[in-house]
Structure formats: C-alpha cells, structure tokens
C-alpha cells in the first residue's frame, strides 16, 4: 500500500517518530530495574570479582603486604588440616538441619491441616520463634543448655544427669542444630501448609473411594503434589544452613575444638580475627562453589522428583 506510506504522519498528534511505544517501554523497564541492577553490580558482582582477586594473594593486614601468590591459597585449602574438620562439621550441620527441619515442618503442617478447633492458635505458637530476635533466641537456649541450666535441671528432676551440652562434641553439634531448627521450622511449616491446602479435596475423596489407606494417600497423592514446594524449601533451607553464623558465634564459638566450626564461622575467624584476608577470600570462593553446586544439583533433580509443576 504505497498510499499509506506517503502520508506517514498526516494529521493528529503523533509522537516523535523515535519514541515508539516499544522504545518507551524499554526505557521504563531499564529505569525500573536500575536500582536493583546497579546494586547487584556494586554489592555482588564487583565484590565477587574482588574476592576472587584477593584469593590469589597473600594479604597480611597487620604487615600491610599484598603479594600475588597465584594458586597458593588454593593449595593451602588442601593442606589445611583444620579445613577437613570444618567441612565435616559443615556437612553434618547442614545435613542434620535440613533433614530435621524438613521432616518436622512436614509433620507440623500435616497436623495443622487437620480440622480441629483452635488450630490457628497452634499455628501461631509454632510460628512464633520465627519472629523472636535470632540472638535473643540463641541466648536463651544457651542459658537453658548450661551445665546447671534449665534443661539439665528438669532432667535431674526425673533422675537423669544431663551432659554439659555445649562443651561436648556430639551434644554441641546436636544443640546448635536443634536451636536453629526450632527457630526457623515455622517458615517451612507455613509454606508446606499452604501447599497442602492447595491439594484438591476431590483427589482424597477419589482415593478413599478407591480404598487407599491414609498413609498411601499421603505417599501417593500428597507428596507428589506438594513436591515443587518441597524442592523449593529444601533449596532455601540448604543455602540458609550454610549461612548460619550467629548461633555458632553465641553458643559455642565453634567449639569444643573445631566440632561446630562451620565454614562461614571459619571464614570469619580467618579473615576478621586472624586477618588472613587472602585465605579468607579463598574460603569465600569455596563457600560460593558449594552453594552453587548444591543449588544446581537440586535444580537438576527437579525433573526427577517433582511430579507436577503448576
């Protein structure tokens, strides 16, 4: 249609030809994301580059030396005998935390999903530690777990002499896990509860007509249908478990020995207590690699374990 081309902006208020609707939208898009994007560049990407750069150096803050040493810090990772223990503690802590958190969250969600009077009160109470200040929660647990603290006091009333929870290797690890689980399990519980309530009731009715017992209904209907939520929460929980710092710092300071020194705590000690910024950076890179690999692996598992996606 040649005619149409000839009178290209004949009458009416036309815009400047450059600012088409699509172009204005692009500009708007960039303006909207600008604060976040600039923040990510300044506070995530550049620091990530720097942390890698630092990890290639020996950096003594007190002596004010910054020397390029190539992969030497990474070789140190292998030679560092403490690191084996630290990684072991990290693995036990994270695994214990995730398993306990997820199963307790699921149990609580199933309980809260029952038709019982006053169930909302229970929900509120189970959730309440989430909003209690983290350090306050940790302090009171530290107080309860003292040798002569509340827990041992109550055990003694039934004739059991409790251990010095935070000063023995096994019980110290159990303690920091348990304290963290009770603090945050409410979050996953709520997410699971929402997922459970999203399962169509007709499915259970159909299963009952088919004669499936309650346990089988749970395994064959409930679990598959809430599997996307399980996956998502497990990713969040694992990544979160690798960031646990305050609880360790307040309860055990990584002890006894290195038994509760998780990677983040070790990183903090190396960098900010011993001022080995170079080696601390290398540990940071390691933490990043672990988080990335775990997240990626779980994302890949999605295809296998998630039966259904909305």
């Amino acid at each position: 249609m040649a005619v149409a081309q000839e009178n290209a902006y004949p009458e009416g208020r036309s815009l400047s030809p450059f600012w088409t609707i699509a172009r204005r939208d692009s500009l708007a898009g960039f303006l909207f994301i600008a604060p976040q994007l600039i923040g990510i560049i300044a506070f995530v990407l550049i620091p990530l580059g720097l942390v890698f750069w630092y990890s290639l150096h020996e950096w003594n803050v007190l002596a004010n030396t910054f020397t390029y040493t190539g992969a030497q810090n990474y070789l140190m990772l292998i030679e560092d005998e403490s690191l084996v223990e630290v990684l072991g503690a990290t693995a036990i802590f994270s695994a214990g935390l995730v398993v306990m958190n997820m199963s307790l969250a699921l149990l609580l969600a199933v309980l809260l999903n029952q038709k019982l009077a006053g169930i909302a009160i229970f929900r509120t109470l189970f959730f309440s530690p989430v909003v209690v200040s983290l350090v306050a929660w940790t302090i009171v647990w530290g107080f309860l777990l003292q040798k002569n603290g509340g827990i041992n006091g109550m055990l003694l009333m039934v004739g059991i002499e409790g251990p010095n929870w935070l000063r023995e290797e096994t019980t110290a690890m159990i303690s920091v896990i348990v304290v963290q689980v009770f603090k945050n399990v409410g979050l996953n519980m709520i997410l699971f509860l929402a997922a459970l309530q999203g399962v169509p009731k007709e499915l259970y009715e159909a299963a009952r007509i088919d004669g499936a017992p309650a346990f089988k209904q749970f395994r064959r209907i409930t679990l598959p249908l809430i599997s996307p939520t399980i996956l998502l929460t497990s990713i969040i929980t694992i990544v979160g478990s690798l960031q646990v710092f305050a609880q360790i710092a307040v309860l055990t300071q990584g002890g006894p020995g290195l038994s509760t020194t998780v990677l983040v705590y070790y990183l903090y000690q190396q960098a900010f207590q011993f001022h080995f910024f170079g080696y601390g950076s290398t540990l940071s890179i390691m933490l990043f690699a672990i988080v990335a690999v775990l997240t990626f692996a779980q994302w890949q598992m999605r295809k296998r374990i998630v039966f259904y996606e909305s």
């Binding site: 149409a4 009416g12 208020r13 036309s14 609707i21």
Partner: peptide, 17 residues
C-alpha cells in the same frame, strides 16, 4: 503494535498513538 498498514480513526492516522 501495527507491523504494517494504516489505521485511521476519524481522519487521523493513529498507528503510533
């Protein structure tokens, strides 16, 4: 958006409005 052609409402071409 209109990829090609002319759209008029009344006597105004409105393609880019």
């Amino acid at each position: 958006t209109i990829t090609d052609g002319t759209l008029k409402i009344g006597d105004r071409k409105v393609n880019d409005l």
